[in-house]
Structures are given as C-alpha cells and as structure tokens.
C-alpha cells in the first residue's frame, strides 16, 4: 500500500515537472518570435553568406598577425592582474583562514556580484572610462578573471587538509607563517591550474572584445563585417580558431603536468 502511494507520488512529481517544462518552453517560444519557416527561408541566405566567405583571403593573414598577438597579450596581462588580485580575496573569503563570517561573507558577496557580469559587458563599461583600445580590454579581462579565479581558489583553500595547519598552530606559528607554509603549498598547484584555465577562456573572450572597442582582433572583425569583406572575415575566424586550439593544447598539457 505504502509503496503504491510512493509510486503514485513520484509519478505525479514527474508529471508536474514535465508540464512545467512544457509551459516554460511554450511561453518562451511565444515571446520570442520563433518561426521555423523563417529559418527554412533563411537557410539559402546563410548558405550564400558561407559561399561568399570562401575562399579565405590568405594574404590578410600576415596583416592581422599583429592584432592577433595584441589579443594574446591582452589575455596574458588580464589573467595575470586578475590572478594577483584574486589571491587576497580567495584567502579572505575562505572559512578556514578567516574565522569570522563578518569578513568572509562580504568578500564572497563581492566575488559573486562580479561573476554575474559577462566579460563583454565589462569591456563595454570600461571603454567609456579608459577610452577605445587595449587598456579597456585588459581591465575587463582582469575583473572577469579575478571573479573566476577567486571563486575557484577559495573553494580549493576550503578543501585543504587541516592537519598541517593544526600542527603549525601547535608549535606557535603566526598568521603569516601559517598562510605561507600551511595553506600556500597545498593550493599552489590548483591555483596555477585555474589561472591557466582562465587564460584559455580569456583568449577566446579577447578575440571578440574588440567588437565593443576594447582592442585586439575583434576590432578588425567588426570593420571587415561592416565593409562586407566576408573573405577577410573568414580569415580572421580561421586564424582565431587556430590560435585558440593551439593555446588550449599547450595549457591543457601544462595543467595535466601540474595535477
């Protein structure tokens, strides 16, 4: 009897969930002008756009190498700044380093707030402040990577082994020694790995930041798109893909070695 009731209840739950999902999907498609017919009508247009992109303008490769390097440079500097700012924040928002909730909750709150804003929005905000160019992109990437690295790092700090820390307290280490010899050696590998991971994300992000005026190759993407030079657009896209894949590969190798 009891089993039957339970079964009926779980069936009801599933039914309610299914209905809820269907309602959400229906409301979303009603509210956003989805039409399969326009997709089918538009596919030839998309196809002709693809054809216009071929063949890529190979001579443009050497022309966009400089902005490509600039993009990578932005990602490197942005990630580094972000990682450096993330260190104190990660320590101050871990429960086992700072014992008082009054301190670690506000720090976590700031981190969560920053992580809600996508990097392109940050770039759009920094462009009016720092002017059009690399600096806006670097600052946007720094703030963004700060959010990501600090979050991952504080979770790593909270997961460390308590034994060495207790031993150090027992022999009378002060707080700074405690952090340097107890906490840091345990989290340094994962911290570097998270930074590399964030660097991978940042290279991808940096490639489109120029679209809002924050430097890098995105600026050229925007210009060529506006001038309908689709062969050059495809050159830029292919170039970005190659660079991203190579950087991902290197970074993955490094991360595998670290952990």
């Amino acid at each position: 009897m009891d089993a039957l009731k339970k079964r009926r209840l779980s069936l009801m739950k599933r039914l309610v969930t299914l209905i809820l999902i269907i309602i959400i999907l229906w409301a979303s498609s009603a509210g956003s002008e989805v039409s399969i017919s326009s997709l089918i009508d538009g596919l030839p247009g998309m196809g002709s756009l693809f054809l216009e992109m071929l063949p890529p303008d190979w001579s443009y490769f050497s022309y966009v190498t400089d902005p490509m390097l600039e993009t990578i440079r932005m990602a490197i500097i942005g990630t580094t700044y972000g990682a450096i700012i993330a260190i104190p924040f990660a320590l101050l928002s871990s429960r086992n380093v700072v014992k008082w909730p009054v301190i670690y909750y506000p720090f976590r709150f700031v981190m969560n707030l920053i992580r809600t804003i996508p990097e392109l929005l940050l770039a759009a905000l920094f462009v009016p402040v720092l002017g059009i160019g690399d600096n806006a992109g670097i600052m946007a990437l720094s703030v963004f990577s700060f959010g990501v690295i600090a979050k991952l790092a504080y979770e790593a700090v909270e997961a460390i082994d308590n034994g060495p820390l207790e031993a150090m307290t027992a022999v009378g280490a002060n707080k700074i020694q405690w952090i340097f010899y107890g906490v840091v050696p345990q989290v340094i590998a994962s911290f570097v790995s998270y930074t590399l991971y964030c660097f991978e994300i940042n290279v991808r992000a940096a490639a489109i930041l120029g679209y809002v005026g924050a430097g890098g190759i995105g600026l050229y993407l925007n210009n060529t798109l506006k001038l309908f030079q689709y062969q050059r657009v495809s050159t830029i896209i292919i170039y970005t893909l190659i660079v991203v894949v190579i950087i991902d590969m290197i970074s993955n190798k490094c991360r595998e070695k670290l952990i």
Partner: peptide, 29 residues
C-alpha cells in the same frame, strides 16, 4: 565538438542574423 565550442556565440549570431534577420530567434539559434 571542440571545433563547435571554439566558435564564439557572437560570430554565430552574426551568421544567423544573415539567415533569419535581427531579433531573438537569431540569438536562440
């Protein structure tokens, strides 16, 4: 799969806008 992942949403959105015009549908695709 990794080739699909590398393509940024913004560029895809531009491609789909060419197909279905501006509007949320291009973003969805």
């Amino acid at each position: 799969l990794s080739a699909i992942r590398v393509f940024p949403e913004l560029i895809l959105a531009l491609l789909f806008i060419a197909a279905v015009g501006t509007g949320p549908f291009a973003g969805i695709l």
